[in-house]
Amino acid sequence: MLAGHCLYCPLEKPMPESTRREVLISIAARGVAAQAFGATDYGLKAFAADQFRLLEQLVDMIVPDSDTPGARKGGVAAMIEKDAAADSGLKRQVQGALSRQSSDGFADTSPPARTALLTDYMIAGDERRHHFQLIKDLTVDGYFATEIGLLQEFGYQGNTYLAESPAANTRSTLDGLRRR
């Protein structure tokens, strides 16, 4: 999204398309055990299988599972793949980011080493930081547009029919917080 994007922008970036994976994961999130689907299960169009596996690792590290499923189970890597297949500019950028991390041997290191590498990327003064931020931005946009991210993680209640705009209940919010 542009830094100066208008609130009522008629040029909203089109939402990326849904995938079989997302639908399956969405079902999984409703109580069916989540399955790990191999890259070939839904036919990759933008990335090679090893690139996709790396992407899955990255989104999983950025927003991992907690008491709610994280970005990998939310199908975010598949969303990014689908979007990249429809947008050559995005595909080039993501591939650039992935190939850098791939050349650092990211996928083959131990989990603690991966965390250390990702931390390095995050604070690096060069393009590695750029690459990390790109994947992070895509993960945030993707994950918090899913039912898992918005409903389960946040408890989002919006975009519904109300008789009136709810009154601010700052007092009860504050009291609730104090009791915690």
């Binding site: 609130l7 009522y8 946040f154 408890g155 989002y156 209640q157 919006g158 975009n159 519904t160 109300l162 705009s165 709810p166 209940n169 700052t170 919010t173 504050l174 609730g176 917080l177 915690r180």
Partner: peptide, 15 residues
């Protein structure tokens, strides 16, 4: 004051 609080429906009249 609102950090860590519960989510609410803040849609209102948008904006």
């Amino acid at each position: 004051e609102l950090i860590g609080g519960p989510a609410s429906n803040d849609d209102g009249i948008s904006g």
